[in-house]
Nucleic acid binder design. Structure first.
Lengths: 136, 136
DNA sequence: AAGAACCCTCCACTGGGTAGAAGCTTCACC
DNA sequence: GGTGAAGCTTCTACCCAGTGGAGGGTTCTT
């Protein structure tokens, strides 16, 4: 009964996990994992136990995807989303976490650049190796 | 008998794992782990079963440390060190792996820079948030 | 011979998923 | 109304590169 939205005037269409996966591009397993970790709370369950998602869940997944791509950890995300879910403005929390993330990105970029230089140095110092025995 | 080198003229002083840890700055557990994974082969064992390392092992650890810092994976390192141990010049292998690594570092730096820009944009667009309810 | 420092193996845990198994639900079509 | 396929459920186990601890043996110094 009441299958997939269009029968009722309810604006929440109750997407199932596969559809959410299709729309977000995330693997089904990953979405389930986010649910298990408390990042995502499906709005409902079907009589058979299927997770039912709504547009708000999609919005949350968009946030999760964006911040995960920036290496925000799952616990940190849980914190952020919880505050968000409580309806409180969490600009402060987000700003702190984003500022910290930018700092760590800067550090990481510096490290990577140093590595690259070192590798380039290494490569150029090897131009003369002929392919015989290695002198240890 | 023949404790810790100086009694014999042998140039290999048979370091124990703690001393190797001290010299390389790596945790004992990590060195043991590298042995388990086949990256490092202690030259000997004491009668009591202690791993005994030599200078060559230290050289290998230096390589491991340097390449691990550049995110070369353990299996890849195992491959590299195996070839090296066989006495064959593995400049080709190393060069390929280093070139690939530089490529991926470049990619990663680009990604990180893009993230940073996006985060900066995000931060600057939030200067006006007052701290009340979040409009979702 | 005692005691401190050192080392051994084995097992379990981390984070962020991913893979597969066994079984239940939903859907479209006939 | 029946059937097959797809989709879903939970559960367990695995990946990497280590790290932590338990429980017990070894080496060195005094």
């Amino acid at each position: 009964m009441a299958r997939q939205g269009s029968l009722s005037a309810n604006p929440a269409p109750s997407l199932r996990i596969g559809e959410v996966a299709r729309r977000t591009g995330l693997p089904v397993k990953t979405i389930r994992y986010y649910c298990d970790e408390g990042l995502l709370q499906p709005k409902d369950r079907s009589a058979g136990g299927y997770r039912l998602f709504d547009e708000e869940n999609l919005a949350e997944l968009a946030i999760i995807r964006a911040l995960r791509a920036m290496d925000v950890s799952i616990p940190e995300l849980a914190r952020i989303l919880e505050v968000r879910r409580a309806g409180v403005c969490n600009c402060g929390v987000l700003k702190d976490s984003i500022a910290a993330k930018m700092e760590s990105i800067n550090l990481r970029i510096g490290e990577l650049a140093a590595m690259k230089d070192e590798l380039a140095r290494l490569l150029s110092s090897w131009q003369d190796c002929g392919g015989s025995k290695l002198q240890r």
